[in-house]
Design a protein around this nucleic acid. Structure first.
Lengths: 232, 232
DNA sequence: ATAAATTTTTAGGTTAGACTAAATATTTAT
DNA sequence: ATAAATATTTAGTCTAACCTAAAAATTTAT
């Protein structure tokens, strides 16, 4: 997917990307299928909690640096360079999350803020040694895949729980929403990655779901269900 | 030295200290015996590689935030709060250095730039868990002492090699200069922390020193000697 | 197809943190 | 004690990254 030539080039220019630019690249990457689909300035503004006018400014700068493609009124995509830098930031974020949970006794709902800071530390040796130290993990504590040195990763093969037939079951493999409130909900209700979950019933009225785990039977709202992905 | 009441207060205000402010506090702390002796704006400018006029601006801001004491034309000292924040930054810096060397295969001359970034990550849980994970080390890889949670530390009991009598010996315990060039010099000449060093001769003409280690006998310049400290 | 609503951009302003050059204070040397 | 040298501060700029309000483009609804 990424040529190693490009990787080397990007690594050389890597140091001149600011923290703020990295955050924009990451947002575009997440919103637009790895930056391949055009994202509106408004969508970016909402994600980053800023204003559309600020986004317009920054996006012009990214385009000038050849990290993004930008056409007025038509949204933003990432260039190969931009996509690789975004992937490297995400790689760092997820590796640090693994470190915090496995080595420093963080719970999975505590890691986000700190990883958000650590992902901007600039040192290739640091990332790659951290990767080795952690045993080259493929997924972070939320079940999201960790890109490799070249920015590639095998997307996890999981399916949303709403698409699973009554009576079938799977293993909770991915949680799409990492907000504090949602992770706290999961903890409170004893739901964790790796749990076997069986879909018992679907209620058409409010689109809620009855599920069964090893410890309990419970009803989850459609809001919750939309964020749970199972490996079959 | 620091009351825990103060510690709690500082921790509460901790999050509003910017990266740049932290760097100034650290510089004042290092230059002025933990911030207790007045430091000139020029000295700070040189340390931080900026200009005196920039320092004047920042120092006014630090004084307004009650982190520094500043009287025009008379230099800067740190308040209790400022001193504690500086100590916490240094604590983080040195703990990360230990981590990089012991867990991630960094050599002691590679750690500085990365630790300089990591020292600004804001999470009390992170620092304290890192400390525990590393076994609560008391010294970093350069032999400098690591402040505890409250900013206190037992200064290392070492003496400059120039103050040691001919024929006596000690263990290399502290290196005062952490510049890249100096650390590379030490590596090249096979000098490391923990080495037993014997002072063989002192040459009054150029103030150089002849020393003997387990592997070699060599002459070190006064420039070098000024930076080597031995535990007797 | 055109008006209304929405989205996006532009224009102009703000703040933190840096800078240069000029002005002022302090220190040093005669 | 005063002039010269040095150190420090002030005044005025600059840039990155944000903002608000107004203008322009696009989309939606009639």
């Amino acid at each position: 997917m990424y040529s190693s030539k490009l990787c080397i080039f990007v690594i050389n220019t890597y140091l001149v990307v600011t923290l703020s630019e990295e955050n924009y690249l990451k947002a575009i990457y997440h919103l637009g299928k790895q930056g391949s689909v055009a994202v509106s300035t408004n969508a970016i503004a909402e994600k980053i909690e800023s204003k559309a006018s600020s986004v317009t400014d920054m996006v012009k700068k990214l385009a000038e640096k050849d990290l993004a493609n930008y056409v007025k009124y038509q949204g933003v995509t990432l260039t190969e360079k931009g996509r690789l830098i975004a992937a490297l930031v995400i790689r760092k974020h997820r590796l640090w999350e693994v470190f915090l949970v496995e080595k420093l006794n963080f719970t999975w709902d505590e890691v986000h803020d700190v990883a958000e800071q650590l992902e901007h530390i600039k040192s290739l040796k640091l990332v790659n040694e951290l990767d080795r130290f952690l045993g080259c993990p493929t997924h972070d504590p939320h079940g999201d895949p960790i890109p490799d040195k070249d920015g590639n990763y095998a997307p996890i093969k999981s399916v949303n729980i709403l698409e699973i037939k009554k009576g079938e079951q799977g293993v909770l493999a991915l949680v799409k929403n990492s907000s504090d409130a949602f992770l706290k909900y999961l903890n409170k209700n004893n739901l964790a990655l790796g749990d076997v979950i069986k879909v018992v019933d679907f209620e058409p009225f409010d689109k809620s779901l009855t599920i069964e785990t090893a410890h309990q039977k419970m009803i989850i709202s459609n809001e919750v269900a939309k964020n749970l992905y199972l490996r079959l």
